[in-house]
Design a protein around this nucleic acid. Structure first.
Lengths: 340, 340
DNA sequence: TTGTAAGCGTTATCAG
DNA sequence: CTGATAACGCTTACAA
């Protein structure tokens, strides 16, 4: 390798070392090598090598505003689903020469606001938002300033931003169809409070519609999942209720599935006997009891699609293109928890 | 809120609006408000408010080199353990006014190298490394240039860098003691290949030492875990071997635990009957069969400690302080998988 | 094909 | 306490 000087080499030093001008070196690293003579290219190449030169992205970002940074807001970094999507986002960014600046908001609107400010202060060139709170005002303003923006799995009021996510209606239909076919007649839908989180709302709404349309009995329990006792009582009541139709739980996301599984285990319910179907496929769903039936989301694809939207925005003019919705389909992974 | 101009306001505009100089505005936002008169502070405050001003971090980073960015290399972002640690790192960074630039390397040395270059090109002020490959040369060079560096859970040849991670020896002792007390006499240690990853090496070594010291029978299977068949055969052979002592599996990390659980399930082994103990506590360990006994790592604390090391480095002079090792203790969570 | 020079938004230095 | 003014490392017209 190279022997680095105490401070990192600058473009000027490389220029001197190569007997060229800053401009030429800049062109060399800015992807305009073609415009330089073979000979100059060689000199710059070796000079840079010798000095261990790397363009300073900060300085780069300063001039034209090309920070080559994409910002992402993640509601809960410890949620495997979010991470999987983020992985897709990151891959796609890398492939396009962008880096990803990720901020976790822990579902806290305050942090969301703060991080949003932070990201913009780094002059990110695009924003992928997956957050529960609603700094709609700020986002609105950003979009109007021409910031490419894509919402992950969540609509945004009247803002002209792309939305990428699951086709929630179809997903719920899929789930309900499966549960019905398997013979479950009374359903309990488990979700975190749906305020502010549009996919939760969409799923909940479709649940109610779908249950009615199929002539099933259905109700929803939408409390914070952290309170295990409340959840357990709700599930217990549901299972103990008089009636003969087989009962099943439908979980709105991975966290709900986890909480429900715990509760069922504590209650001593047998999976399958009591149906259980969760949205989001997790590592362990195949391992618990007879396996938990899930609806898998194409996480990587969702992440990649988000970046594609961003790039499309960047390229084809400013906010002239109408905002779009990209919906992905969930796929059912049937397991023992919905087999009676 | 404020009505934003098409382009974000600059310090100059704020200065004009406030009838002050760039310098004063800079001081206001650079944490030197005390030096300004109450009156000036007020004018700047409201001018900035009006214009929706935010300092441009890029420009900031350019001048003094204060990018306020910490870089982190993560070997596998989809590993819950890594994410948990990263969460701690991020929190700690935020509390200190830094942002975290995370790069996932997917355990690929090439990506590692590339990302390392990337991070330095953003002039990160410190680096938290959790990666399997060995770009030792590059890291070495960075340290010599005075870059604060802390290794997560992995030693680095002769580089003077802090190391933060689990006390692997004590962790394995804990595991072996528990297994012995529970009456398991023959152990199979499951790990991914330990080359290059020092914690894997440390754990494996201690396993062998500890088994010998306790008069247990022990062997290790260190293949890539993706190949399910091989793993299954290895475990099958182990269980089918003649002998009467109860047998147990000891898993080197969460991935191994997952793979082992799958294999055992396929083989039809009953947990507890066949012992199973995994390093790393995961969401689902309590839910599978009678529960899986684990050794939990204090993930958040590890992450925070990493940042503390970094900051200590930054503050108290350059690379004069001797590098240290911060070791955390694992805690045993006994469950049914080690109860016969 | 190559070079010159003028910024980009901030901070740091040095005067008032 | 406040303010000019010169960097910081790079890109980008505009020349040559």
């Amino acid at each position: 390798m190279s022997i680095h000087s105490p401070q990192r080499a600058t473009i000027l030093e490389v220029a001197r070392e190569a007997g060229a001008s800053k401009t030429s070196v800049s062109r060399y690293f800015g992807g305009e090598r073609e415009r330089l003579s073979r000979e100059l290219q060689g000199r710059i190449e070796s000079a840079a090598q010798r000095l261990g030169y790397r363009p300073n992205q900060m300085a780069r970002g300063l001039k034209g505003g090309r920070s080559r940074l994409i910002g992402m807001l993640v509601a809960d970094i410890r949620n495997p689903f979010s991470v999987a999507v983020m992985h897709g986002v990151e891959q796609a960014c890398r492939e396009r020469g962008y880096s990803l600046l990720v901020c976790n908001t822990d579902n806290d609107p305050a942090q969301e606001r703060e991080h949003l400010a932070l990201l913009t202060s780094y002059r990110v060139e695009g924003l992928v938002i997956n957050a529960a709170g609603s700094p709609d005002r700020e986002l609105q303003a950003l979009v109007e300033q021409g910031m490419p923006l894509v919402m992950l799995d969540r609509e945004l009021g009247e803002v002209e931003a792309e939305v990428v996510g699951l086709d929630n209606a179809r997903a719920l239909d899929l789930a309900l169809d499966h549960l019905q076919v398997q013979g479950y007649g009374e359903l309990l839908y488990l979700s975190e409070p749906p305020e502010q989180a549009s996919p939760r709302q969409a799923r909940l709404m479709r649940f109610h519609q779908g249950v009615a349309a199929r002539g099933l009995a259905g109700e929803a329990h939408c409390q914070a999942l952290k309170d295990r006792e409340t959840l357990q009582r709700a599930i217990g009541d549901f299972l103990a209720r008089p009636g003969t139709a087989p009962r099943a739980l439908l979980c709105a996301n991975g966290n709900a599935t986890l909480a429900a599984t715990r509760a069922l285990q504590t209650l001593g319910a047998r999976l399958g006997d009591t149906g259980l179907l969760g949205i989001d496929e997790l590592d362990w769903c195949a391992l618990v009891g007879p396996g938990i039936t899930t609806l898998a989301q194409p996480t990587e694809a969702i992440g990649r699609a988000a970046v594609e939207c961003l790039m499309r925005r960047r390229e084809c003019g400013d906010h002239t293109t109408p905002s779009r919705r990209v919906h992905f389909q969930a796929s059912l992974i049937p397991r023992g928890s919905t087999r009676r």
